[in-house]
Every structure is written in structure tokens, then in C-alpha cells.
Write a protein that binds this DNA or RNA. Structure first.
Length: 492
RNA sequence: GGCGCAUUCGUCUAGCGGUUAGGACACCUCCCUCUCAAGGAGGAGAUCGCGGGUUCGAAUCCCGCAUGCGCUACCA
């Protein structure tokens, strides 16, 4: 790179941070960190109508959660601020004024109603629905007339009628657009705010952005931006368009495709390291085998030329798998503190709060390799916490067992276990294996029975470890309850 | 309708003129095993959208077509 890399992530605060946008931010971030450049966060709040309260905070929250920090932008400042477009209005109006003055733009007095009618008419004639340039050649008297009527105009760019604008996209290669297909787009709205087209050009130039990294949906408007750069006598940056994240139907990922906000994933218990890794891999790959990469590795290995060109479906199954990989890689202490909030929230109401962290720490090794998503810990491990187990009594009677043999085995187990002075899993295993032998039933039969009796489940972590964590008191109580169940429910 | 971009297993992808088209997720089988996971070993799964070229040779280069997606707002 000839000059120091300066990239920006420029979200519009119109809602919760979309994973697609965060993925763009990740590319920006990796690019900046890889080349030792600067990562700028700029808020494009030029649409008053769509602005959502709290969206800026959510975006920053999401970025910080996945570990993306910005060198310039809100809360950190920088030499090219302010970093909110709503605070840079004079820059845009001045640029628009200049363009009008030099004949590259003009004021348009058309009402939204007229534009709508025009579009309908053109659509009916199967023509492109772009602006018909009605106000492009108004004479001075006509303009004065419109002004006198009190109409606040918008400013449109005067797109050349002939020729074409070409550019080299670092991902897609040569791209060309005929000017005849570009209409005179609005740069400055009647409320005095700029549109994206004007604002992003003015700011990218002012902030000395070297690479504009954004989603493929922007390719079509890039020639407009280039036209503005040229008219303003500014050097355009390099353009890097990357493919979209799409839903299962291959349409741009949106709300109807379920979870679309990064914060939703946090709420469900996906780890930030998972999201960073997974999102990096949508549309980018290192090679034919490396998938699990931490932040530093992603930074070290990232390069634009390995970004692909085709939209990718957000593969939730693979995300779940990857999250499991990261969960299994956590220390018990770390996992405990991350799981705790999900237990507090997801455990049945009857379980008293706060949840005992020491107890949680003990059970973590048992659930660690059995959950992929933190919130699942609550449903997976609720039997560790509840007082009354809920299960069908018939579950106690396993394969090749009868209510009678099950009852006898349970009573025998209860007796042997009650004499144990410590509930260590090795001791439990030793004791119960012997018991199975004495009872002349298979170990699996006994263990399954005890599993149901102590947990109410058929599938749990290893029985002895589980019983050890539950502790003698809970186990004995549950075995007694199971005995009572078998004694009182005849005819199984 | 116009313009643009894209097209390799179900999904994410590797591949950048010569490979038995590789890997991962999901799926199936087996092993491990007290159940469930995790882990290990296998398996199935892609005539590389279609049709023409170029070339000794094409998933790879070129041209058509088809399909999909994106843009087509005083939204970004």
C-alpha cells in the first residue's frame, strides 16, 4: 500500500446492528489492523425519518462486544471529526452549492406527487423509472417563479447524458456503467440533509479514506459517487465491494430470516469470539482448511484478495458447531462466569436466586461439551437445581426390567449409597458396579435406573460425576422419591 | 422494464490450463462408552448452471443463453 490505510465503517443508526453490517465492520477492522492502518467509525445519521433512538449505542455496543475498537469516531474523537454526519451539514451544503454554481448540479422543484406520477407513467411504458430531468433546464425566470411559490428545492446531480464511468473494484474487477442509465439523483434533500451519495463522498474525501469497503448492493451507485468525486476535483478511494449475506431463499438477509441483529446472538449465548470468527468466514477464506482462527490470526491472515464474489447463506448449523468449539475451549472459570447470567435468566422460577456460583462451577465440566449455545445450559442442566423432578414413572423401568426388579435395585442402591461417607465419583462407580454384580443385572440397567431416579432424564452427563455434583443429600432424596413412585404406581 | 453482478457437494468454501475436484457444517456407519455429548475412523454427497468456442488439454480463458441476486427513493 502506497499510503497508510484508512478505512471506515459507516453505519446508519436505523436499527439494531445487522450481522451483515457487522461483517463489513469486521472486514474494515481486519484490513486496518493487518496493514497497521486506521479504522474510522462514522455515523451516517442523515435520514431523520428512519433514525432510531439508541441505535448508535447498540452499534458501538455490538462492535465492542466482538472486540472491534475504532481509532477515530464517536467517544474516541480524532483529527477528522465530527464523526456524526448530522454535525457536518455545512460541508455538504457547501459542496452542493459549489456543484450548482459550476453547473454540475441543479435545484429541482418537483413535488413527490409529480415524481410518483412520472414513475408510474414511465413504468407503464416499460421505461426506466429514473427522474425525467424536468427541472434540469429551467430558465432563470422559471426558477424565480418556483422560488416565489415558496418551494424548497432538492439539489440533483447533473449526470452527463453520454459517456460512461468505469472503475476497478478490488473484488469484482472492471465495472462499467453508461451514463444514459444513471438518472439525476438527489444529493441534497429539501430538509437540508444530504443523501448518502453526497455525504459519503464528501466525508470519505475529507477523512482521507483510502479503501471503501462495503456490500455489493452499493456497486450500482458507485458511478454516481465517482461522478461527484470528479466534479469536486477529489481523488476517489479504492472500492472494495464484498458479497451479501443472504437468507435460505438467497435474498438479502433480513428480519424475516429470523435473527439478524448481532445482539440477538449475544442474547442467545453465542460467544463474541465465535461471531468474529464465523462472520469473517462469510465471504472470506484463508485456504482450503483453516476455519478456527482467533482475532490475532484473522488480523495476520486477512487479505482482500481472498474475499469471494458470491452471496453466502448464513449457515446456522455451522455457527452452532463453531460456538461449541469455542465453548469447549473455555476454562471452567471463564465458562462459569459466562453461563451464570443465562442460568439466572433461564432456570425455572422455583429455583432460588442468586444461583450458587460454586455449585455452577462444579457442574460446568459436565455441561461444557454438551451445549453449543450458552442459553441451552438452563434447559440442559435444570435437573441440577430443581427440587422436584418431573418425569414419567415408567422411565424408571428400563430394558429387561420390571417394576419389581427396578424397585428392588433402587432400594438396594439406596442402602449402599447411604452408607457412603463421601460422594466421590470413583467411589460411586466402584460401589454401583459391585451392586450390579450382586443384583445380577447389567451395569447399564442399574445405571440407567439411577440416572432417571437422580436426574429425571435418559440422557445426562456421566452418572457418577453427575451424582457427585448433585451430592449425597439430593441423590438420596431423589432415590427415595423414585422408590415411592414405584411403590404407589401399580400396573406399570 | 432498465442497469449491474454472480453461478463448484444440501450449506460455507479450496481451486486461479493438466488434481482420483480438497476441506468444513449437516447427514449415515463403525469405534470409544453407564446414557448423551465430545473425540477417532470411514461413507454417501459436485456430469464444477447450460450451449458454443480457444487449447494437445478447461471448473479454470472467451462468447452467448438461462437462472438468481442487487440497484432502480428527497433510505442507507
Amino acid at each position: 500500500m502506497a499510503q497508510p490505510v484508512r478505512v471506515r465503517f459507516a453505519p446508519s443508526p436505523t436499527g439494531s446492528p445487522h450481522v451483515g453490517n457487522i461483517r463489513t465492520a469486521i472486514f474494515d477492522y481486519l484490513m486496518a489492523r493487518h496493514y497497521g492502518g486506521t479504522f474510522v467509525l462514522r455515523i451516517e445519521d442523515t435520514d431523520l425519518a428512519r433514525k432510531v433512538d439508541g441505535a448508535v449505542e447498540d452499534i458501538m455496543d455490538a462492535l465492542r462486544w466482538v472486540g472491534i475498537d475504532w481509532d477515530e469516531g464517536p467517544e474516541v474523537g480524532g483529527d477528522y471529526g465530527p464523526y456524526f454526519q448530522s454535525q457536518r451539514l455545512p460541508l455538504y451544503t457547501e459542496a452542493a452549492r459549489r456543484l450548482v454554481e459550476q453547473g454540475d448540479a441543479y435545484c429541482c422543484y418537483c413535488s413527490p406527487e409529480r415524481l410518483e406520477v412520472m414513475r408510474k407513467e414511465k413504468a407503464a411504458l416499460k421505461q426506466s423509472t429514473g427522474y425525467d430531468r424536468h427541472c434540469r433546464e429551467l430558465n432563470p425566470q422559471e426558477r424565480a417563479q418556483k422560488e416565489a411559490e415558496g418551494i424548497t428545492p432538492v439539489v440533483r446531480f447533473k449526470v452527463p447524458l453520454e459517456g460512461h464511468t468505469d472503475f476497478i473494484d478490488l473484488i469484482y474487477g472492471d465495472v462499467s456503467f453508461d451514463h444514459a442509465t444513471i438518472d439525476d439523483f438527489v444529493m441534497l434533500k429539501s430538509d437540508g440533509y444530504p443523501t448518502y451519495h453526497l455525504a459519503n463522498v464528501v466525508d470519505d474525501a475529507a477523512m482521507k479514506i483510502t479503501h471503501v469497503i462495503r456490500a455489493e448492493e452499493w456497486i450500482s451507485s458507485t458511478p454516481r459517487h465517482l461522478l461527484i468525486y470528479r466534479a469536486l476535483g477529489l481523488e476517489p478511494p479504492q472500492f472494495v465491494h464484498h458479497p451479501l449475506i443472504v437468507g435460505p431463499d438467497r435474498a438479502k438477509l433480513s428480519k424475516r430470516h429470523a435473527d439478524v441483529s448481532l445482539l440477538d446472538y449475544r442474547a442467545h449465548g453465542y460467544l463474541p469470539e465465535t461471531m468474529l470468527n464465523f462472520l469473517s468466514l462469510i465471504g472470506w477464506s484463508l485456504d482450503d482448511k483453516t476455519e478456527i482462527m482467533n482475532r490475532q490470526e484473522l488480523i495476520d491472515y486477512f487479505s482482500l484478495d481472498r474475499i469471494g464474489r458470491t452471496g453466502a447463506i448464513f449457515n446456522r448449523d455451522k455457527l452452532d458447531w463453531m460456538n461449541g468449539v469455542y465453548i469447549r475451549g473455555l476454562s471452567v472459570e471463564d465458562l462459569t462466569s459466562r453461563v451464570l447470567p443465562f442460568l439466572e435468566k433461564g432456570l425455572p422460577e422455583e429455583v432460588k436466586r442468586p444461583v450458587d456460583i460454586g455449585y455452577v462451577r462444579q457442574m460446568m465440566p459436565l455441561v461444557q461439551e454438551r451445549i453449543n449455545i450458552l442459553e441451552n445450559a438452563a434447559t440442559y442442566a435444570d435437573f441440577f437445581f430443581v427440587d422436584e423432578l418431573e418425569y414419567e414413572t415408567a422411565m424408571l423401568v428400563g430394558k429387561k426390567m420390571t417394576p419389581e426388579t427396578a424397585l428392588a435395585a433402587l432400594k438396594a442402591a439406596g442402602e449402599r449409597l447411604s452408607s457412603l461417607n463421601k460422594f466421590d465419583h470413583n467411589l460411586l462407580e466402584d460401589t454401583l458396579r459391585h451392586l450390579a454384580g450382586d443384583l445380577e443385572i447389567k451395569t447399564g440397567q442399574l445405571f440407567s435406573l439411577l440416572r432417571v431416579a437422580t436426574t429425571g432424564r435418559n440422557a445426562t452427563p456421566p452418572l457418577f460425576e453427575t451424582m457427585a455434583v448433585l451430592g449425597k443429600e439430593r441423590c438420596m432424596k431423589r432415590i427415595k422419591a423414585a422408590i415411592t413412585r414405584l411403590e404407589t404406581s401399580k400396573g406399570l
